[in-house]
Nucleic acid binder design. Structure first.
Length: 351
DNA sequence: AAACCGTGGAC
DNA sequence: TGTCCAAGGTT
């Protein structure tokens, strides 16, 4: 069994000249000079990056830190403001847990994030990956970070042929063996940069890889086939009706979704259940006009939404929803599927 | 522990 | 077009 020291040294050397630049990151040169990243920014970026690409996160990170520059400011924010700012980024439980976590840190921990994986792991929305990432990156603790990039890199390095997710514990062990005692924060980010730019899922750029000489999969020519993954079940298609209504004074009929479940806590248009054969469920008496169909794919099903639009008289009394004044409504505060419905209905309800 | 939970880009 | 995938966590 190797101890991984040579691999770690080669990777860190590569990172010193190839580290990606990101708004939340302290680069290897600054870090060598003793500069540490702000734990608040590391935490915020790590939560945003859960199952989400760097490209998608950049602007959200800038807006959040511009508006809430520290954990105290975020903790004091109104729930609806945070959910609206998160709209479009997906996995909305992250935003709800983000606020819970900020309030624990600001309220119970004096504004300081824990600096150990166990302490971090106890906070809402922080699991094994994020706890290790914050401990390593923000506090330079020797924690092993295991995300999809790391799993792919070590699966190839050690030619692990067993399929995911069953092989995850084995891949985590292999990753831990690679982690050096020095520069754990840089090492964690180096592994992720390598996975994102060189050791990519398809067509890895092995000729540019600092670990090529160590890589068992490369040696056998099977790097493109690893890590293997068990087949995913097909996505069923569900249907639904959604109702975009605007009162004559310009107010929109909206509804806050239940706090848990799909799009939990987000603003949306009232509508039917999403099922194989849903019943229509108009939220008010009105002349509903067809505004087309919206197609959208969620994590585990396809959705075909029939959009109905109507104008409501000034004295209308809807059965459901809340009338939001026109100037207070922004489609940007809606999750994407609801914004699509707004786009489809807009022309029919404009003033 | 298997299911649930978003979105956009690449191919 | 459809499928895969991305710095996963919670229940």
């Amino acid at each position: 069994m190797r101890d991984g020291k040579a691999e770690a040294a080669a990777l860190l050397s590569w990172y010193d000249s190839h580290a990606r630049v990101m708004p939340w990151r302290v680069g290897p040169a600054e870090r060598a000079a003793g500069i540490r990243p702000d734990p608040y920014r590391v935490w915020l970026s790590e939560v945003m990056l859960q199952q989400t690409t760097v490209a998608a996160v950049r602007d959200y990170f800038r807006r959040f830190t511009g508006r809430w520059p520290d954990v105290g400011a975020l903790a004091a924010a109104a729930d609806a403001e945070v959910m609206a700012e998160w709209a479009g980024l997906g996995y909305y439980a992250r935003a709800r847990n983000l606020l819970k976590c900020a309030r624990v840190v600001a309220g119970d921990l004096g504004g300081d994030f824990p600096d150990t994986p166990d302490g971090l792991r106890a906070l809402p929305g922080i699991g094994p990956y994020t706890a290790a990432a914050i401990a390593a990156i923000a506090f330079d603790r020797p924690a092993t970070v295991v995300d999809g990039n790391v799993e792919r890199v070590v699966a190839r390095l050690d030619r692990v042929e067993a399929p995911m997710p069953g092989s995850k514990p084995e891949l985590a062990r292999l990753a831990a063996r690679l982690t050096p005692e020095a520069r754990p924060g840089d090492f964690a980010q180096a592994m992720m940069d390598l996975g994102a730019t060189i050791c990519t899922p398809r067509n890895p750029a092995c000729a540019l890889c600092p670990l090529e000489g160590f890589c068992k999969a490369r040696g056998a020519g099977v790097q493109g086939d690893l890590p293997r993954k068990s087949a995913k079940p097909p996505k069923p298609t569900r249907r639904g009706y959604t109702y975009v209504a605007r009162r004559d004074d310009g107010a929109w009929l909206l509804e806050e979704r239940p706090a848990r479940g799909l799009l939990g806590g987000m603003l949306g248009w009232p509508g039917s259940d999403w099922a194989e054969a849903p019943d229509p469920a108009p939220p008010a008496e009105a002349e509903w006009r067809p505004a087309g169909e919206v197609r959208h794919t969620f994590t585990h099903f396809h959705l075909i939404l029939t959009v109905l639009a109507a104008r409501l008289p000034a004295d209308a009394t809807p059965r459901r929803g809340t009338l939001v004044p026109g100037p207070k409504f922004s489609p940007g505060a809606l999750p994407t599927v609801m914004r699509k419905a707004h786009d489809a209905a807009r022309a029919l309800v404009e003033n």
